[in-house]
Design a protein around this nucleic acid. Structure first.
Length: 163
DNA sequence: GCGACAG
DNA sequence: ATCTTGTCGC
């Protein structure tokens, strides 16, 4: 069953965090999937879109678009409970299952090390990368001023939190 | 107590 | 995330 309350969701994260395996090697990747979720009807409907590309060619191989009732409110730190259910439905419809997932949200750079990418990857047992557009917690060193600069930052920098 | 807070 | 208007860059 899926958590319905904030305490239950946090408890589940605490339970799952130990299962996370941090890796810099994703093994042999043949198909990579881009995953994202949008909302309709004032947030009451969740819409998942998954596209599978060949790797490294990046040719579209498959995709799925699924809508379902939104199961959980947006709570910073608990995004996965709002977006994952409909994503699971979409992933189940793929004829070409991916070897790697790239999600719009945090991975282990999360208060309890379980951002949506980590959570989803754990549930479907597929390596996942969190590709968030902004920071949820922590800090990082100042970045190069030039767009496209190659930098190597600590994973989930300064994640000292008291949540 | 106050501010911050993925999408 | 979504909505909506104005502005910017190619």
């Amino acid at each position: 069953m899926w958590p319905t309350t904030i305490p239950a969701a946090i408890a589940l994260q605490e339970e799952l965090r130990s299962k996370i395996v941090v890796a810099d090697d994703f093994g042999t990747v043949t198909r990579v999937a881009g995953v994202d979720v949008g909302f309709e009807d004032e947030g009451t409907t969740a819409r998942a879109a998954v596209v599978v590309l060949s790797f490294p060619e990046l040719r579209p191989l498959d995709y799925a678009l699924v809508r379902a009732p939104t199961p959980f409110p947006y709570v910073p730190g608990l995004l996965s409970f709002r977006e994952i259910p409909v994503v699971l439905d979409a992933l189940a419809q793929l004829a070409q299952p991916p070897d790697l997932l790239i999600c719009d949200g945090q991975g282990i750079a999360h208060p309890r090390r379980l951002g949506i990418a980590s959570h989803l990857g754990l549930l479907v047992d597929i390596p996942a990368i969190g590709c968030a557009k902004s920071l949820l917690i922590g800090h990082h060193p100042s970045l190069p001023a030039t767009k496209g600069s190659q930098v190597r930052l600590p994973i989930a920098a300064n994640t000292s939190v008291s949540c």
